[in-house]
Design a protein around this nucleic acid. Sequence first.
DNA 1: CGGCCAATTGATTAAACTCAATCTGCGTGG
DNA 2: CCACGCAGATTGAGTTTAATCAATTGGCCG
Lengths: 250, 250
Amino acid sequence: MQTGIVASIQPAETASALVRKLGALCLLSEEEIAYLEGLQNNTLSVDKGRDFIEENADLRTTFIVMEGWAIRYGLLSNGRRQILSYALPGDILGLHVNFRAAATYSASALTPLTLAVVDPRRVLEISQKYPIIAAGLSWCTAREFAILGDQAVRLGRLSAQQRLAHLLLELWHRVELIGNGAGDWLEMHMTQADLADTLGLSLVHTNRSLSALRRQGLITVHKDHVRLDDIDALIEMTDFNPKHLSEFRV
Amino acid sequence: MQTGIVASIQPAETASALVRKLGALCLLSEEEIAYLEGLQNNTLSVDKGRDFIEENADLRTTFIVMEGWAIRYGLLSNGRRQILSYALPGDILGLHVNFRAAATYSASALTPLTLAVVDPRRVLEISQKYPIIAAGLSWCTAREFAILGDQAVRLGRLSAQQRLAHLLLELWHRVELIGNGAGDWLEMHMTQADLADTLGLSLVHTNRSLSALRRQGLITVHKDHVRLDDIDALIEMTDFNPKHLSEFRV
DNA sequence: CGGCCAATTGATTAAACTCAATCTGCGTGG
DNA sequence: CCACGCAGATTGAGTTTAATCAATTGGCCG
């Protein structure tokens, strides 16, 4: 497990999630680690439920998620919402914001959130000064594309139960990879209404699909947690590809 | 219209689609144009219907579409297919392939295709040597994200007719922006089966949704073309946001 | 205790899927 | 020149999935 490697280099308690994430890919130098940590000196706290990016508004900031979960979403004029992706600690929002005039999505805090606020112009200098970090960011970009592609496959070609299982697998793997895992358990920071808006389903049908998975013994649902009882079966039934989340070329 | 600006700088007949696309955003120097054209010296022809990227296979190439249309898609083990996006002239595939071990999607030629084959390591040197071009590529990346996000919204929260109309609007705008437009008409290089796999619908339902749009006087369908008869009404009914495709910060 | 948010359940309706033909245009071989 | 085959488009009929409408329940907090 990649988190094991990180732990031996950087104790998880002291390193930021972004350093843990990139450090799991390649060996970062002291200087690179110091630069990445320095990038996150300017922090912002966002209350649970609050929007911090609004579609069509001027956006001149790059955010790094330090603690907590967020969602990216789009709103339609009839009030319907489509959640595009989940941002977990170590994830970056607005990495390519430099030459866009306006945000193409909204973002909202699913939990109390700690964000690093970064001037996107600093992103530009990274490729000059820190090629290894630039490589890591390029990898992050490709990974975000893969995750969003998986979301499109889920929405377009999986059944309700498969969509749910597939999303749980994605989040479980992502949490594991940043060292926030808790065995089979996944902390659920979203409501069933959020799940519905992620999976393109109604709230009622989301609820029923959850019970169906439960009745088949595939998951166990507690208050704010879900246990993936049979990960192999879930992967099998959804065609989930964990390599989309972790593959890296040395 | 941005294409007008391009035409005054670079005659469309001589400049590559990528130069036309980036030149529409910002004024490129002679040197930058020459570099971009040189990047596309090594070309590859792909027959209609043939795959040129396969999911999970080792991918160490960046492709620039010079002529023709392609699709990116994912396949499930039950044979179902989800088309993720369309690649038009000037679009780049595998821009962030440098640090990924394997392709996370497949790609196939919708028409006879001319691709520029680029060593992805050349992408790395761009940010050192040509900051303006690097800015353009960063803009392309953000735009691809916006397009894929729109695809997720389509799949998750639009009705069958809305999905269809929304996709037609996307492609019509994109074709216009690279100067390949033909008024209200859109050349349809995909079959109805392809449309179905793009929109997460069955072939039969796609066919019926097309006729429904036709009966409402919103589109006219000919052999391989569609005319958007009432673009404003189509935008209105789908919440289409053209800014996702063209906004640029100076 | 009351109010609110989230989850759950029942009943009905609507959207989209599947199966099964049929049709149409087009190229190819006899 | 025509019969044949094939791919793509179209139509009909019946089924399934998921949406909608409408309560109801369970926690939690003030």
